[in-house]
């Protein structure tokens, strides 16, 4: 790891003024410290923001929206009873990510800003336009679990976050403070698509700091029918091959409003607004969901021409909608977001 200056500001103002080009904010560190070890990130200065006051609260605002401080840990948020009741698919997504240890440390803002897990990004010896503009893209010759939406010839990486997928579906907003003062950015706009500048992997300007996330009051109206589904190569502690957050507001047996976003398919969580519109006013059933998923994913294509991931994303979207229609379970399943959500009974064994 490259040597760096370690700075521990006591206030937000101090933090903002301590920032300089080449510096990195340190929250939980679960992503930054890892990438500093591989050498993919080499900040000259690390600014530890974990002691900044007032950023660790979960509040309900007078308008019914929920404000989550940037430093709230993933586990704290997921296990907050009120929060999980109001936004169950966000809690389920959080609990399907990483491990218990990592969730205890990782902050919500850090989760939003985490880097792609593309192995070619993580390894400095590999060619990667995202890490080293203009270098080339080794992933293109070995795409594996790459993007199928919104990728470019410069970069086919995906965003690995589970948390942000339901956030985007629920129209969450990030409150950001920088040298120019406060502004708000929709979580959906936080990660730009790669285009020809994949190195620009955040909409934040240099020196800007996320202070909080806000979920609108309206997002609570989906609580009865909201699920996150994540397909993985092992039962737990794995990144998604494809995931989907699906939420329905069902009134009088019909879908009054639907929300749907996919994860692990693009450089950002992919909201499917057209699909949402297609479902409005219709009865929730598997045939509708299959039709919707089919239509929307018609625009997907994979860099290597392989179809399996597109099929998987489509099936995941349709299934997540079916699960949402069936209703949010009273308690988050033992295996959060897993297709194997229902208990397997085996009396002889634990």
């Amino acid at each position: 790891m490259k040597l760096f200056d370690f700075i521990q500001p006591a206030t937000i103002d101090e933090a903002l003024s301590a920032w300089r080009p080449g510096a990195a904010w340190l929250g939980g560190g679960t992503n930054l410290v890892d990438l500093m070890k591989t050498g993919a990130m080499q900040p000259d200065a690390v600014i530890d923001i974990t002691r900044l006051p007032g950023l660790d609260r979960i509040e309900t605002l007078p308008d019914g929206s929920t404000r989550i401080g940037a430093l709230v840990r993933n586990a704290t948020l997921a296990h907050d009873r009120d929060f999980a009741a109001a936004y169950p698919m966000v809690a389920e997504a959080l609990l399907s990510g990483a491990s218990g240890q990592l969730r205890n440390v990782a902050t919500v803002a850090g989760n939003l800003l985490q880097k792609t897990r593309c192995p070619f990004f993580q390894e400095p010896a590999a060619l990667c336009n995202r890490r080293d503009p203009g270098a080339g893209c080794d992933a293109m010759a070995a795409p594996g679990n790459s993007a199928i939406l919104g990728w470019s010839d410069a970069c086919i990486a995906t965003n690995p976050s589970d948390f942000t997928v339901p956030l985007v579906a629920l129209e969450a907003v990030a409150e950001v403070r920088g040298p120019q003062g406060m502004r708000e950015i929709a979580v959906a706009d936080l990660q730009p698509l790669p285009g020809s500048t994949p190195e620009r992997d955040t909409a934040l300007e240099p020196g800007e700091l996320i202070l909080a996330l806000r979920l609108p009051a309206r997002a609570r109206s989906f609580a009865a029918h909201a699920r996150y589904l994540k397909v993985r190569e092992r039962t737990s502690f794995a990144f998604a091959l494809a995931s989907a957050a699906a939420a329905l507001r069902i009134e009088g047996g019909l879908i009054a409003e639907a929300r749907l976003a996919l994860g692990a398919v693009a450089a950002k969580p992919w909201r499917l607004a057209e699909a949402e519109a297609m479902m409005t006013g219709k009865a929730p059933d598997a045939a509708l969901f299959a039709e919707v998923a089919e239509a929307v994913l018609a625009m997907a294509n994979s860099p290597d021409g392989q179809k399996w991931k597109i099929d998987l994303a489509r099936n995941t979207a349709a299934r997540a909608l079916s699960m949402a229609a069936a209703g949010t379970p009273a308690r988050i399943p033992a295996l959060p977001a897993s297709p194997f959500g229902t208990r397997i009974e085996d009396p002889q064994h634990v």
């Binding site: 370690f6 521990q8 560190g29 679960t30 410290v33 530890d48 586990a75 491990s99 240890q101």
Partner: peptide
Amino acid sequence: CDRGQCGACTVLIDGHRVNACLTLAAT
């Protein structure tokens, strides 16, 4: 693994389990 991928380094910090490998001592 030294990268938060295996859990062998798990300790409790203020009662919470964490991966010691990804925690900078200075913090």
